[in-house]
Design a protein around this nucleic acid. Structure first.
Lengths: 206, 206
DNA sequence: AAGTTCCGGAACTGAATGGTATCGAATTAA
DNA sequence: TTAATTCGATACCATTCAGTTCCGGAACTT
């Protein structure tokens, strides 16, 4: 007996939490902010999660599902096109938001290093994995040399993206992605650099 | 008249601030912590800086001076040796500490994006600049192709180091540096990959 | 209809903390 | 010697905020 718990409130609250996390960070986020933005009472929040940390943890873990669809990766026959197409269905703004949420968790990570794993698994690992798959395919079809260090190269775009977003505070846009792919990823894999008809230096000036 | 201000207290306090910043982050750091670790009274701290943010800002800005000595870079004639020698005089632990301090500032950066510039200039920019200088030299002496995107490649090690330290929470050690140089930096510049006698994949396994 | 659990909202509590004020001792200059 | 200013230490204040409790109303079960 009794009223059923409205499951749709969970998602609303977690969405609000992620947004605020990305905006002001873990310590800057108050439970009142989250409740207000989700148009929920604090009691409703605390009925679902015992502590602020619990709530944030689930919010971050949930993002994993919205990540790159590993079962449905682009397959154009060209590694370069595949890498660029990775950001086609899901706009880059979403990636930037995730990276900022990760930055917002930095304070949490300092105090609870175990959470670093959760955050990484949810926000970065699937992205690295997608790169890895695309590069292995390219290697198997002979597009890139067999001795390339795919494991390491697959981390370039995520880590440079994090650096750019979190520290440089510059946008993760298409120009940046192209610079990464043409200027770093493909050369590191042993492919010839693009001809100078495409602007070589877009990455960052200072 | 009156007692002179003891200038040596400044450095002691700022050192304590940086250490604590690296350990628990900006929000986790309390002024009492800093005072206790520096064996100073809070009045002594507030006599020097009006607010916590002011103190942290000066602490971070001060690290710039201890950075890589741009006027005395290694010059072995081999880019690879130069890049590896960059971490010879100053041990890697110090680099890791700086990166952690940067992570500790993440919360601050969210709220005051202007500070991101200060932090970047002090902690990362000199490092990128050093890489840039070494690579330009290598290009000028014909060791690497002229069309390499030095600007972008110079950011690889700093950004991958930040990713590894802050998000993966793994050590910034020599093996990692070697993986970066041999697996990414040199190949991206158009140099042949190392022969497989050196382990190709050390970067990170997930 | 009755009883139970949920809802959003608001008031409340207890702890933490930035910043201020004050203390006695030490240092320096006049 | 005396006055001014520093020092480390501690007490204090005002605010913020995580978490609790209560409310009136809505929804679901029996």
């Amino acid at each position: 007996m009794g009223r059923k718990r409205d499951a749709s409130r969970d998602a609303t609250i977690l969405d609000a939490a992620i947004s605020i996390l990305a905006e002001v960070g873990y310590d800057g986020m108050t439970m009142d902010m989250v409740a207000v933005r989700a148009k929920a009472g604090k009691a409703t929040v605390y009925r679902r999660w015992a502590t602020k940390a619990d709530m944030v943890l689930e919010a971050v873990a949930r993002m994993k599902r919205e990540q790159v669809d590993l079962d449905n990766l682009p397959d154009t026959g060209s590694l370069r096109d595949d890498l660029l197409a990775l950001f086609r269905p899901q706009p880059m703004e979403e990636t930037e938001r995730k990276l900022r949420a990760m930055a917002g968790m930095a304070a949490l990570l300092s105090q609870h290093p175990a959470l670093a794993g959760t955050a990484h698994d949810a926000l970065v690992a699937p992205w690295v994995e997608a790169n890895r798959v695309l590069m292995r395919r390219a290697r198997d079809r002979g597009e890139i040399p067999g001795d390339a260090d795919i494991e390491t190269v697959a981390q370039i775009t995520p880590s440079m993206g994090a650096y750019r977003t979190l520290i440089r505070r510059q946008p993760f846009d298409r120009a940046f992605l192209v610079t990464m792919v043409d200027g770093l990823v493909l050369p590191a894999l042993g492919l010839p650099r693009k001809s100078p008809d495409s602007p070589p230096t877009t990455g960052a000036s200072t």
